[in-house]
Structures are given as C-alpha cells and as structure tokens.
Amino acid sequence: MAAFSDLNILHMENVSTKEKLLMAIKLGYEVVAINNYVENVLVKDDKGKSKKEPSKVVEIPAPVKVHLTERDIGDLKVKGASLKQLSRFTTVLSDPGQWRRMQEDDIQAYDLLAVQPTTEKLFHMACTAIEIDIITFNIGDKLTYYLKPAPVSKAIERGVHFEIVYSEGFHSSSRRTFIANALRIMHVTHGKNVIISSGAREAMDVRGPYDVANLGLLIGLQEPQSKDAISTNSRACVLHANTRHSVKSVISVRSSSELKAEDQWTVEACRKEASEESGDDSSESAAEEADSSFDAARPESKRRRMDGV
C-alpha cells in the first residue's frame, strides 16, 4: 500500500511549518508536500505606467525543506518508514501568460506544481495543455465556472490530479460551498485522480489519514477510492511530477549506413550483444539487428529541455 500523504501543508511566514510536519508525522503521514502559495506570478503594470515597461519580476520563494532530527521522526522510524518531504508551488491561474513565467527555473525547481484556474478557459488549458501536476480550487468559494467532462477526462488521461482541500470545510461559512464543490468534483471525475489534502494553516488543522478517508465517503467516494485519494493517487501525482523533471529523449530507427562516423560503434555493439544473448543459432537475427540501429539521443540533446514541444 502506498504511504499516506498530505500534499498540501501550507508554508506561511509567521506559523511554524515544523510544528505542522510534526503533527503530520504523529498522525501517521509519510509523505508531505510543503506548499508555497504565490497569488500571482506576474505583477500587472500599474495604470500610470506605460505598458512597454517590463513588468516587475515577482520574487519566487525558494522551495522549503524543514530540518527534522532523528527524534522528530521517531514515530515513523518505529514503523520502518521515514518522512518524505516534497516542495510544492501553487498559484492562481488568471492569465495564460503566467504559464510562460512558470516554466522558468525558479518555479520548475519545485517538486510539484499546482494551479488554481479562475475561468473555464483557463481550466480547460490547465487540464489539457500545460505541464502541471495538480489542479486545485478555491473550494471554500463558489466555483465561477462549470466543470466540463471533456477537459476533465483529458486531465485524468494525462495524469493531472484534482485537489480537495478539507480544511476549508472547518468553518461554517465555507462548509456549504466546500461540500457542494467537492460533490461537483466527484461527479465529474467519478472519483478518479482526486487527492484530498489538508491545506493546513495551523498544526491543529491536520487530521489523521483515516479521518480524511472517512471524509471522502461523505463527499461521495467509494471506500477504496477514498483511501486512494490520500495514498495511491498522491503517489501517482508525485510520480507524474517526477516525469517532468526527468530526461526527455527520442528514439528513432534508421538504416545503419546513414549513421554518422562517431556513432558507428553502436552497430557493432548491438550486433555483439545480440549474438551473446541468443547463442549460436541466431546469426539471422543478428544480421537483422545490424540493419537498423538505435540512434539514442546524445547527452547534450538529452539535457536540453523540450518544453516548447
């Protein structure tokens, strides 16, 4: 079973994040993501300024990692587990141009990227086009757009997850909309690719994993789905994030005669490998191998990011 995870521990200026992590450890979480929330990654020009002037660059805080001693994670050590800390960046998506800003290194340095789309168009974009891991909602306020099934199923196909933040359900002012919105999300996703996280502002806002799983039942998940929402789905989400950071490369097949001189050795290598693998009676297959060889992308091109594609 995948470990319990809470992918939204809010990092705030004046509240100790460590305290929240200790609470999460105490309650049995093994994966936590510390969330840095930046309302807008672009600063809009003031009205007085001319539009040609480059807009100010918003300073993005560096990913946070809390130092925990052996003693702090003692509860988990007993179980033979340890705490995995991830960093997460969340922003409100209110302008398509923000995505360009998010592709820069300071934001890409985060493990998980989450956006909170404000319009239906941007929601569509977040579901279908841009490379993010989590789509989150301001779940305590009324959703201003309709969640259409088409982009949602595309998002599920791509491995993007939808987040429900349960700490919004604590206050009676936002509880109604919390439940209504959560039900809407459930209705449109059928419980697939949904993660439930705390969004904790204080340590007391974190609830135990089984409590959260039970809350999933209340908002219309099936029992196994509900458990997945705090374990397996979160794990899938983290792995999806990892793929964003891993090497992107292309495999192409071509005739060995077209190979460049410096890559000729690969033909020999493939031939040798093939004959070693299948013993004596495989001279035919070895010859076939020689016709086409894999032209693996070379290191430089591997390192180059292909985000534009």
């Binding site: 359900g169 204080e202 007391m204 409590d211």
Partner: peptide, 17 residues
C-alpha cells in the same frame, strides 16, 4: 460515517482550536 465526518470537521470548541 456521519458521526465520524462530523467529528473530523470540528475545529473549534469554545473558541479554542
């Protein structure tokens, strides 16, 4: 499920967290 979720969604008692 009702009781459990009601307990989970409680965050204040006598205006204390």
């Amino acid at each position: 499920v009702k009781l459990w979720s009601a307990l989970t969604l409680t965050d204040r008692y006598m205006s204390r967290k």
